[in-house]
């Protein structure tokens, strides 16, 4: 699979089965998901099958990419394409998160004040919810989910902030190692980053357990519970994905796949990790702190 075999100097991959497999894996997963949510038991098996297929696809696709990369198929221009692609992918993710931050903003600053009697639709309060006061955290005039306590900012969340910030530093350190062809620093930096990431996820899971059992803070806890779990949940999911990607990169680093001038995969994952980091800062400020 050498570049020469292909047309011109821009690498055009051979026909590949992975996209079709990707299509089927997504279809099966989501089809199963829709069934499972409506209590059809077949659904959950399909979800598992679809996800397995998806991971197989990721494995296969990236295996091809790595093979092509190692046989020098990719020139500068291809590398730039990958970089730009990753950049715009992250941009789309930013907007995905923005929709949840936007929801939080809207509920806190527009909807709840109305329900509480302020602002343009304040008459709502007078007609429908006499006596309801708007204080955040809120589970609404219907007091959905019952009595609860909010999640404080200065316990685990603060620790998690430190963890993620540190992990941002360690991955940069690993990147320096890579740039200086210092494999040891690269590997150590990655291991530290992964460890921090995993630690973060564990703490987050612990925090959820705490919230469910002791604070009675659940998904059903009105607007506060909804936004809290949605934002932190999607973020946690991204951290998990990031950690998996870091592990793949670690494996490749150990096999010395990267050189100081050819390591797009590493950079892509690093960008992703920084993105996850920044989102967390937003979460910390808007979900936990303010």
């Amino acid at each position: 699979m050498s570049a020469k075999e292909h047309s011109g100097d821009y690498f055009i991959p051979d026909p590949s089965p992975w996209p079709i497999i990707g299509m089927f894996s997504l279809l099966i997963t989501l089809f199963g998901g829709a069934l499972a949510m409506n209590g059809v038991s077949l659904g959950s098996y399909l979800v598992v099958a679809g996800l397995l297929m998806f991971f197989y696809l990721l494995y296969g696709w990236f295996r091809d990419v790595i093979k092509e990369n190692l046989s020098d198929c990719y020139n500068r221009q291809v590398d730039t394409s990958f970089r730009m692609g990753m950049f715009w992918f992250i941009a789309s993710e930013v907007f995905f998160f923005l929709s949840f931050f936007g929801a939080l903003y809207y509920i806190r600053n527009i909807a709840l004040p109305w329900l509480g009697g302020d602002g343009y639709l304040g008459v709502t309060n007078e007609i429908l919810y006499h006596g309801f006061e708007n204080v955040w955290p809120s589970h609404g005039p219907g007091e959905l989910g019952g009595e609860f306590q909010p999640m404080g900012a200065w316990g685990i969340p603060a620790i998690n902030t430190l963890i993620l910030l540190t992990s941002g530093a360690t991955i940069t350190w690993a990147h320096w190692g890579l740039k200086m062809d210092n494999q040891k620093q690269l590997v150590n930096g990655l291991i530290a980053t992964i460890a921090l990431g995993v630690f973060f996820v564990i703490l987050q899971a612990y925090e959820y357990g705490h919230a469910y059992q002791e604070l009675n803070l659940t998904l059903e806890t009105g607007a506060y519970g909804s936004t809290f779990y949605m934002l932190t949940g999607f973020h946690g999911f991204h951290v998990t994905m990031g950690a998996v990607m870091l592990m793949a990169i670690l494996g490749r680093s150990m096999k010395s796949h990267f050189s100081s001038h050819n390591h797009f995969a590493f950079e892509a994952v690093a960008w992703y990790w920084h993105f996850v980091d920044v989102v967390w800062l937003g979460l910390f400020v808007f979900v936990y702190w303010l």
């Binding site: 509920i107 909807a111 589970h139 609404g140 219907g142 998904l219 607007a223 936004t227």
Partner: peptide, 14 residues
């Protein structure tokens, strides 16, 4: 499906 109330006034959503 999961009991959130983004779009339900009773829980503070809209």
């Amino acid at each position: 499906h999961f009991g959130t109330s983004f779009f339900d006034a009773a829980g503070g959503g809209d």
